[in-house]
Design a protein around this nucleic acid. Structure first.
Length: 290
DNA sequence: TTTAAGAGAGGTTTGATCCT
DNA sequence: AGGATCAAACCTCTCTTAAA
């Protein structure tokens, strides 16, 4: 279901980007392969991410969501994130920049308050749509072929457009603060991958705890501390999120939806669907499809 | 076919405490 | 700080039943 492949060079790839940015105001990275080559992580640099082709699940801060091709997001400093594709291809372009450095440059030309505000808002992760998305994605894709000052102008253009965007969607919850530590990344990534790969079947707490190398009691506490939700809540959010994706793709049978998402009883599926979405599955279908 | 409520069993989460 | 252990509280999960 989810591509859970892993290569030995994942970390060096990311470390290289951070090295590159040491010497520049910003840098871009193009991913074009069977999967997104980073694990769950966070860093000081902001990033603008445009998914060209792929779909799957993503975690940004405390949000668990589904992404598809043509998705544009801005992630602020220290916001934990990961994209797990469940297709065998992943194509995206990402622009990394150090917000402090960008602000210090911009402030030499006048007040940079609106950019400061943007970077602060980005700590929740922002998803863009409409004309903003169209304009930014085009500018982003042009950057790799540009040099020197033209490149800088593109970045400034992008940031300017982002400050003017309307109807944006915030991803992490209001007031979200990162409670992960850098050393959590591996462990948490293993657990997330486990859930995303197995949510359609049975998932036992003890198995997840073992994957995290912890006793189940310690794991419960650890998981809640980092994700702000219990392990069972997380699994249900992933399952109901998947149900919504299937509904969006045209599934009309509530019963098969329940079993496809890992529920062994219709009654339990209905219960959690209502709890998470605030309405019954049938209502949700009607609202979505008119 | 779908939704919802209730009950019992058993799984999950949490508080307190101890250990490293 | 972070994890282990135990006990107790809390909550899911599944099944049943009934109704829309």
């Amino acid at each position: 279901m989810i591509a859970v492949k892993k290569t030995a060079n994942m970390k060096p790839v990311f470390a290289k980007i951070l090295e590159d940015i040491e010497n520049q105001v910003f840098c871009t990275r193009i991913t074009d392969g069977p999967y997104f080559a980073t694990e769950f992580h966070f860093h000081k640099e902001c990033q603008i991410n445009y998914v060209l082709e792929s779909e799957g699940k993503r975690i940004i801060g405390d949000s668990v969501g589904h992404f598809t091709s043509d998705e544009l997001t801005l992630l602020g400093s220290d916001l934990p994130h990961v994209w797990y594709n469940d297709r065998d291809y992943a194509k995206s372009i990402t622009l990394f920049f150090d917000p402090d450095r960008v602000l210090s440059i911009l402030s030499q030309f006048g007040p940079a308050c609106k950019f400061e505000t943007l970077f602060k808002a980005a700590k929740r992760g922002i998803k863009y749509s409409g004309t903003t998305k169209t304009a930014i994605s085009k500018l982003l894709l042009d950057i790799p072929g540009q040099e020197g000052i033209t490149k800088i102008i593109s970045l400034l253009n992008i940031l300017e457009i982002l400050t003017q965007a309307e109807n944006v969607e915030f991803l992490a919850s209001n007031g979200y603060t990162n409670s992960y530590h850098a050393k959590d990344n591996d462990r948490v990534d293993r657990v997330f991958k486990f859930v995303f790969s197995n949510f359609a079947g049975d998932i036992q707490l003890e198995e997840a705890a073992a994957i995290a190398n912890m006793h189940k009691h310690a794991f419960c506490r650890y998981f809640k501390e980092r994700t702000r939700r219990t392990f069972v809540q997380f699994v249900n959010e992933v399952r109901i999120g998947h149900a919504c994706k299937l509904i969006a793709e045209g599934e009309t049978n509530v019963s098969s939806l329940a079993y496809d998402c890992g529920y062994n009883s219709l009654s339990n599926f209905n219960k959690f669907f209502r709890k998470i979405k605030g309405m019954s599955p049938r209502n949700y279908m009607n609202e979505l499809n008119g």
